[in-house]
């Protein structure tokens, strides 16, 4: 699904991501872990097109998407969430989701002025899709609430829903369980599994080790921008390089 060849990103002289190659398979949960500042977020930004890599190649479904703009990559079917959930606090949850399907529509200013049939159809389509993804993440009962008033976990789910509204095949989740409690984390993990069951490939960055170890099919470990290990949770857990990287930093070792 996603093949990364020798990906490198340098800021000035510093390599945030250094010569990373990996392949993520479709319909799997792939995780990226590593100590703080290891280059995980940069890696995500490169895949999502938020930054252009210095060297290397990113191949998505056989297509070279290296250096392609963010919005084009999104249209090809890669969606993402961010560490901090960004939503419009003043409107309702459902209203926040409608724009998620915008990239699959064609209406332009002229359609707006004459209120064309195309626009009306597409607005219906977007609203329906918003309702659908809201149901999917289990929040249809709070669709009418003002977004500012919902809980942190609910906001995370809305962010998932927004990403799903773009009809993605690959979803990149940046620390989805950041800032929520263990029980909510488990619910969120269940939701991630549900996404995969429905044919979406997931790739996530996460700090919560117990979550990753029980959830991921494949894990890549990066440290100082370099890939130091990849494999199943068990393989990674027992890899001496990984243990060293984690003990070397003030992060907790894999639980």
């Amino acid at each position: 699904m996603l093949k990364i060849h020798n990906l490198t990103k340098r800021f000035g002289g510093l390599a945030a991501v250094n010569n990373v190659s990996i392949e993520f398979e479709a319909n799997k949960i792939n995780a990226i872990i590593g100590p703080n500042g290891a280059g995980k977020s940069t890696f995500f930004n490169l895949v999502a097109g938020a930054m252009a890599p210095t060297e290397g190649r990113i191949e998505y479904q056989g297509m070279d998407i290296t250096g392609m703009a963010c919005d084009r990559i999104a249209r090809l079917g890669i969606a993402r969430t961010f560490q901090t959930t960004m939503l419009f606090d003043q409107s309702t949850v459902l209203d926040n989701l409608i724009v998620g399907h915008r990239l699959r529509t064609q209406s332009r200013l002229w359609d707006v002025i004459i209120n064309s049939k195309r626009l009306r159809d597409e607005e219906k389509k977007c609203r329906a899709r918003a309702q659908e993804v809201l149901d999917f993440v289990g929040l249809s009962h709070i669709g009418h609430r003002i977004t500012a008033d919902i809980s942190q976990e609910e906001k995370k789910r809305v962010a998932f829903a927004l990403a799903l509204a773009t009809d993605p095949e690959l979803v990149l989740l940046d620390e989805p369980a950041g800032g929520i409690n263990p029980e909510e984390t488990e619910n969120l993990a269940a939701l991630i599994r549900k996404m995969v069951d429905h044919g979406v490939t997931v790739c996530l960055i996460e700090h919560k080790m117990d979550m990753i170890m029980s959830l991921a099919d494949k894990i890549m470990v990066i440290d100082h921008g370099e890939k130091i290990a990849e494999g199943t949770p068990d393989e990674v857990k027992n890899n001496p390089l990984v243990i060293e990287a984690y003990l070397g930093s003030d992060e907790d070792a894999a639980a």
Partner: peptide
Amino acid sequence: RIAHSLLGRTFLAIRISDDLAASLGIN
């Protein structure tokens, strides 16, 4: 008309964040 249409929602997504809007496939 603009504010209540998909176009207005597109603008609003940009107001929330450039990064978010771009990740939703908005040019």
